[in-house]
Nucleic acid binder design. Structure first.
Lengths: 110, 110
DNA sequence: TCAATCGTCAACCAATCGGTTAAATAAACG
DNA sequence: CGTTTATTTAACCGATTGGTTGACGATTGA
């Protein structure tokens, strides 16, 4: 049986998908616009979005011929609870997060 | 290029490996003892431990013929920072974590 | 109506994954 | 010494992954 947690962590293990989530943090986007910065076919991005959607990390809503993707961080909460159990983590540190994203966006050859 | 974050999330995406981490939360263990509760060959567990080790989630130290596995939650911090950026998460809730572990240990057919 | 756009689907591919068994290495025991 | 114990390695297997291309259905706009 494949649990939600399996799906969430597997979804997060791919840098393209993490980059997509980071983009969606800014704003909701259509599939084509999500795909634009990547050197990869639209079909590939479509698959990534399906994986994110199955994991509950994004929601997709079709309006006309455009399918809008929006972040749905609720699935992350479960994973976060799991991880927190292992940590003496600092409390939420958004500065650290900003630095992290900058680094990721630099590294991921978008 | 495979980043640390890729390795950590991929490692966490398997229920056997999460169960191993949960066990190691209690105490350090030898490889054979880690393998004992699972219906799986020792070689398979050895591979899982290698994956956890490469991700930096555990450390292994050989003393005599026994290889001891201990939790190393430092790698989780990085992943935690990443995830926290997406969340309006409640502050660390260990009660929720305990419930979570109970459920996981029940579900994972150990 | 007809062409362009948005997105998915199907078929395919090489690489990786999670497991197996059997053999190999290394240390400890009697 | 030879045997048992602890663990990894190697070869193999079927399933999954992350990508491709090309065809397709649905919606929009001229």
């Amino acid at each position: 049986m494949e649990t939600r947690l399996d799906l969430v962590f597997a979804a997060l293990s791919d840098p393209t998908r993490r980059a997509i989530l980071t983009m969606l943090l800014e704003d909701d986007m259509a599939v084509t616009d999500v795909a634009e910065p990547f050197e990869m076919s639209l079909a590939a991005i479509s698959k990534h979005l399906t994986i994110l959607s199955r994991a509950g990390l994004i929601a997709q809503e079709k309006r006309g011929r455009v399918k809008w993707c929006k972040l749905d961080p609720s699935a992350l909460r479960e994973a976060s609870v799991w991880m927190q159990g292992f940590g003496q983590f600092e409390p939420v540190n958004l500065d650290a997060f900003e630095r992290f994203l900058e680094e990721e966006l630099r590294d991921d050859s978008l």
